[in-house]
Design a protein around this nucleic acid. Structure first.
Length: 362
DNA sequence: AACGCGGGGGA
DNA sequence: TCCCCAGCGTT
């Protein structure tokens, strides 16, 4: 067994370092429970730089729990468009409704109560409890797992839930009573700015360089131990930008599963040839006039890789409605409908006209 | 415990 | 290419 590490020795150096090195972030001024909550949900599996442009806009549109609980789904998804993991914002709205009903619109200052809200797990409950309410509970995210694994030279596989639970327990015992929020943020800040992943830590700048066991042994490159994720599967798809006059056909995705509830260009599995596209369109009851092959594109999700090809299609004017499909004014499409990034390579083709004789750009 | 769920940036 | 990211809900 390894020699025990006294985590309390880490607190003061870390807090002193954080005083001088805390980044200025939008959600750090005025850390109200609601602002902390929104920021923490946005930051789940998402880098600070990616969140920045979304945070202020979201707070401006939905300044409090009541506004969030009442927001129409489409506006909600539009505010989240491009951030990914769209269930985060749906769950946050459900939680907001719970907070309105059970807590008079104020987040509960209680760790266990927070974890019962939709979308708030151990980490996020700890972050809100400590940062917004000063409650001395840990907030163990990927950064914390990494910096603690290294400083204590712990080889446990951080992918295992049991390892995360153990670290929460260890940290709970040493939480500084009056600096819980700063301590948790400092741990994460250290991971994000100094104790970088992939064996590239800036140890010279680290407040723990004198006590870090991985630094001392030179094993920092091997830590943390993390078992590999499953390989992605590849999916071939054909995307159809179907135009009738100034309208384009959009499809609303199912309410469960990948990109739930978002809008997309109709697309089918496989790489279809021109004749197959025409057959498919006719089966839908559409009359294609012109077809133009579009370039290939790929989009990588966490677990799937789409290899896409596309066609722009000009069809006869139609008033017909299809299953979960609607014709939308091209001008309104990108303004009003949340469309995931996977289709960004094809949105530009909405504005292109398929002329009578040949394909030309406007 | 395993899996599904987005998107982007850096090495 | 691969890895990582202020994770969580479902099964």
């Amino acid at each position: 067994m390894r020699e025990p590490f006294d985590l309390t020795t880490l607190i003061e150096p870390l807090l002193n370092w954080f005083k001088d090195h805390a980044r200025v972030l939008p959600w750090r001024n005025e850390p109200t429970p609601y602002r902390v909550w929104v920021s923490e949900i946005m930051l789940q599996q998402t880098r600070v730089e990616a969140v920045k442009p979304y945070f202020d806009r979201f707070l401006k549109e939905l300044p409090d729990v009541a506004a969030l609980s009442d927001c129409p789904e489409e506006k909600l998804l539009k505010l989240w468009e491009g951030l990914g993991y769209y269930n985060r914002v749906r769950n946050m709205q459900i939680a907001a409704q719970t907070v309105m009903e059970n807590y008079h619109g104020e987040l509960p200052a209680d760790y266990e109560a927070l974890t019962k809200l939709k979308g708030i797990g151990h980490y996020t409950a700890g972050a809100i409890a400590s940062i917004a309410f000063g409650i001395p509970v840990p907030a163990v995210d990927g950064n914390v797992l990494r910096v603690i694994s290294r400083v204590t030279e712990d080889d446990a596989d951080i992918m295992k839930a049991s390892v995360r639970t153990a670290m929460e327990k260890d940290l709970l015992e040493i939480m500084p009573e009056n600096r819980a929020g700063a301590f948790n943020q400092a741990l994460m800040e250290l991971g994000a700015t100094v104790c970088l992943p992939n064996g590239a830590p800036l140890c010279e700048a680290c407040p723990w360089k004198e006590v870090c066991r991985a630094q001392k042994s030179g094993r920092w490159r091997e830590l943390p131990v993390k078992s590999k994720a499953k390989a992605r599967r590849i999916e071939d798809r054909t995307v159809l930008v179907i135009k009738a006059e100034d309208k384009v056909l959009l499809h609303k995705r199912a309410n469960k599963g990948l990109l739930a509830g978002l809008y997309e260009f109709p697309n089918v599995e496989g790489h279809l040839k021109e004749e197959e596209v025409i057959t498919y369109l006719k089966k839908m009851g559409l009359s294609p006039i012109r077809l133009k092959k579009l370039e290939d594109s790929r989009h990588i999700f966490s677990h799937i890789e789409w290899h896409m090809t596309g066609y722009a299609v000009q069809i006869d004017e139609t008033e017909q409605e299809y299953q979960n499909m609607l014709f939308v004014d091209v001008k309104e499409t990108e303004e009003q409908y949340p469309i995931p990034a996977a289709f960004s390579r094809y949105t530009g083709y909405m504005n292109i006209r398929l002329g009578n004789d040949r394909y030309k750009e406007e």
